[in-house]
């Protein structure tokens, strides 16, 4: 069964995709309170992601979660670059696994506190 991944879109990310044609692919979640892209992953791609990141798990909705923040950030960058939500985006992310893992090591010690 295919799995899914969600990429949350804050104001900065919404700005970055303006005019890219990706706007029509945005999912409105929780009554429009959250914007997100939902990617459907083939079995093979889902397995590759799960194998690459020990912390990754599939939640009760069938979504892959608990990946490093660096993974989510890279995933958004690849989506913006490819203007697509297909498997090619996941390929782009997996090609940058070493870079993501290096960033993930640092983020396991410290994550910047958001401004309120």
């Amino acid at each position: 069964m295919s799995k899914f991944m969600s990429v949350l879109l804050d104001d900065k990310r919404m700005e970055a995709i303006k005019g890219s044609g990706l706007e029509e692919k945005i999912d409105k979640m929780f009554g429009g309170a959250l914007n997100a892209f939902t990617l459907e992953l083939s079995d093979d791609k889902a397995k590759e992601v799960m194998d690459a990141f020990f912390s990754a798990r599939v939640d009760s909705r069938g979504f892959i979660t608990d990946v490093p923040i660096a993974f989510s950030r890279t995933l958004f960058e690849e989506i913006a670059k490819a203007k697509s939500l297909g498997d090619d985006v996941i390929d782009g992310v997996l090609a940058r696994v070493d870079e993501i893992k290096e960033a993930a090591e640092k983020e396991s010690e410290f994550l910047p506190v958001p401004e309120l």
Partner: peptide, 16 residues
């Protein structure tokens, strides 16, 4: 989903 919510928090996105 608890893990979805945790992911949102870790990304520093102010939750609705």
């Amino acid at each position: 989903s608890g893990s979805f919510v945790r992911g949102m928090v870790a990304e520093g996105i102010f939750p609705p």
